[in-house]
Simulated assay, not measured.
Amino acid sequence: MKVYADYAATTPVKPIVTERITEILTNHYGNPSSIHSIGRDGRKYLDQSRREIATILGANVNEVIFTSGATEANNTAIKSVARMNKSKGKHIITSRIEHHSVLNVFEELEHEGFNVTYLNVNHEGIIDLEELKHALTNETTLVSIMLVNNEVGTVQPLFEIAELLEDKDVMFHVDAVQAIGHMKIEFKELPVDMLSITAHKFGGPKGIGALLVKQGTQFMPYIHGGEQELKRRAGTENVPYICGMATALKDTYEHMDQNNIHLMKLKEQFLVGLEENAIPFELNGSMVNTTGHITNLYFPFIEVETMLTLLDMSDIYVSSGSACTAGSTLPSHVLEAMFGKDNRIKQSIRFSFNAVTTEEEVQYMIATITKIYQQFKEEENE
């Protein structure tokens, strides 16, 4: 049996999405900026997809800016706010467990003279609200915090964060990449100014995403060269993939409730199965403030590289953390922020499930991990 359990890294493109992309590629190839009928045809599908995405996410149509993915969306939001408001102040805030498409931007801004506060987190991966409260100053212009952590699945207290900012002139950006499909997003109701998403985390194609920007929010374009996206993001829009993203998002939201129930059942089955087989492990993250699709576990009896290799040899495909740091010999910065320089950070694996993950696949993973553990016990006793 082959088991893919790395859906937090990426998801396979849904068949209905492939069909939609192919249909647009084949029959509606016009540049949406062209004024002739073929171009207007392309514009029709671009506008239709923008409306669909805005409606599903509870946003106004003109609040959706299409990007090449979340990395561009995060870069755009953070650099736009920081650089536009540096005359007011050069203090910006994020957490130590953000995705590198956020952390590396903050590091770049530090080199430009910005003062950055990196918030600490507790053992569950939740930021310290008191630390955030005391970090805010009259020169703070931006707070950027992810909604759902990509390595441990912890959900941050978004509304509590926003409450600390409501009487201050501070912009709030949220990386919501891992939340889409697992939490209902109503952009109008969320107390945030900018929100990043990417299609390939919910059954859409890679290379397309969006930045949602609240109406009235000051915004500085990151990419220049044309007047696309209401002059906010230059470059010919990728209409086939935008249509694919809209199709994937619609399908994801239509089945979100039942999928979340399914994922929580799988998570429970996985953890209970490991316990019943007397596998020594500990959960990295929270059992309460979490989503169902990510489970990060510490196995004290084995190094992460060895476990990944043995699982791969059994056709189980998982990871030790973010795919964006694949090939790095450095330990997870998320786990290090949570636990310090403990052996735990070198012995932890991320399992991430999807609506198509089956109970049989989870049972196979339990059986395989049990077999690996028994082999290590036998070697220890020799």
Rank of each mutant, 00 (worst) to 15 (best):
S319K: 12
E108R: 11
F339I: 03
T55Y: 11
L266I: 14
T94H: 08
P191H: 03
E378A: 15
G203L: 03
K206F: 09
I294R: 11
G125K: 05
K133I: 05
L57F: 00
K341S: 10
Q375L: 09
L25E: 15
P240F: 01
K88G: 07
Y253L: 00
K346R: 15
E160P: 00
S95E: 11
F299M: 00
I242G: 04
M1A: 13
I65N: 06
Q374C: 04
I65R: 07
P280I: 08
I127P: 06
R232M: 10
E110Y: 01
T94W: 06
N85S: 13
G30N: 07
I24M: 04
E19V: 12
T11H: 06
H91N: 11
Y29K: 12
V213L: 07
I21Q: 06
M365D: 04
G42K: 05
K214N: 01
V17N: 09
T325C: 03
N120E: 14
E108Y: 09
P240R: 07
A8I: 07
K377C: 13
T357F: 02
G113N: 01
A9P: 01
M245I: 01
A326Q: 14
F376G: 12
V64M: 09
S332V: 04
E98N: 12
L46Y: 12
K184R: 15
K14V: 02
T309Q: 13
P32A: 06
Y222P: 01
E23V: 03
T22F: 10
I97C: 07
T295D: 07
S34F: 12
L119I: 02
L57T: 08
F187I: 08
T22M: 08
V17C: 07
I78D: 12
I185W: 10
R20P: 01
N138I: 06
A337V: 01
S101E: 02
R96Y: 02
T154P: 06
T309S: 15
S101H: 01
L308I: 11
H100T: 10
I56D: 03
Q48N: 11
V143K: 03
L311E: 09
M365W: 00
N277S: 07
S314C: 13
